[in-house]
Computed example of a mutant assay.
Amino acid sequence: MERLFLDRDSRVHRLSPEVKIAAVLLFTVVVVITPREEFTAFAGYAVLIALVTAPARVPAGWLLRRSTIELPFVLLAVLLPIFGHGERVDWLGLSLSVDGLYGAWNIVAKGTLGVLASLLLAATTTMRDLISGLDRLRCPAVITQIMTFMLRYVDVLIDDARRMRIARLARAYDPRFLWQAKAFAVGVGSLFLRSYERGERVYLAMLSRGYTGTMPSVAGRAPAREWAISSALPVAAAGMAVAAAALP
């Protein structure tokens, strides 16, 4: 579950998780509400991401490789200028929609910045710290509890699924085609029943140990200095948005 976390000794890693979550969330909000025509503002946001990446000691190649998760949305954006309506321009023999071009830019720019910011958060914060930070930010307890249990047992479920597949292969049955999907469906159903039964046993064990419906609170709060440091990202982004809007 910690595949995205990079164990580095940096000032960004040492920041409390709640301040990093708040900073990324506010930065993303600023990016999303920025009009798509403000190209200067988006360039400034990219510079801010780079300025955070350097002290966090996160390799640029690592970010770029994992940002390919947005490729399906990029492919969708490529189609917008072709099939869009309204005013059109000619480029390399193609008739492209102006509104579609703006829409494609809007998706690619905002999506890329959001993905990069999220990857930076994941690279500098462990999953357990993220859940702890959400808890300190007063995220609904039921959500953080579900995330905690998922973090604890998802590897167990993956191991169960792997053992079931090995058992199926040991019996010389390896479904690869649509008409052989029954075995896969049966395996998924069996895995669901095992997960449900395990959840019931874990819940009863928690009740026997004094569980009352809420997880123990995490002590400690982020100092004001860390809040001030983390606020530099969204504040700078907001300043760039205002400055770009003020330009003629």
Rank of each mutant, 00 (worst) to 15 (best):
G210K: 13
T125E: 02
G210E: 01
E37K: 12
L96W: 08
Y102I: 03
R209V: 02
F83P: 04
A243Y: 02
V188P: 00
V32C: 00
T148N: 02
A22R: 14
L116V: 13
T68D: 00
S97L: 12
I21P: 02
A224H: 10
L51W: 08
W91T: 01
Y102C: 00
L233G: 07
R165M: 02
V29A: 13
G220D: 09
V202Y: 03
V12D: 01
G103D: 01
M164R: 13
R221F: 00
T53Q: 15
I146R: 12
L75G: 11
F27E: 06
P72A: 01
W91E: 03
R225G: 07
F27R: 10
Y203F: 14
P72L: 03
R225H: 06
A170L: 12
L4K: 03
P175N: 11
L101N: 09
M147F: 15
V186K: 15
R168P: 00
L157F: 15
C139E: 09
E200L: 12
F42K: 05
Y173I: 10
P234C: 07
V47F: 12
R163Q: 02
D9M: 04
R66W: 10
Y45I: 03
D160L: 02
W105A: 15
Y102V: 01
H13I: 07
P55T: 06
T68Y: 06
I21M: 12
E197L: 08
T126E: 04
E18S: 05
R128C: 00
I82P: 02
I49K: 05
A54W: 14
P175Q: 09
F39T: 14
K20E: 00
L151Y: 08
L15C: 09
L6F: 05
M164T: 00
I33T: 14
I21T: 06
V242R: 04
T144W: 02
P216N: 11
V12G: 05
V186E: 13
A60Q: 10
L76C: 10
K182S: 04
A181W: 11
A183T: 12
I49M: 14
P72Y: 09
I69C: 00
L120R: 07
G103F: 08
L247E: 13
D129H: 12
E200G: 05
M150C: 02
L134A: 14
L137G: 07
Q145I: 11
F184Q: 13
L151C: 00
M206N: 08
A172E: 09
V188H: 01
V52K: 03
A236S: 15
R168K: 11
V12W: 06
M1Y: 06
L191K: 03
D174T: 04
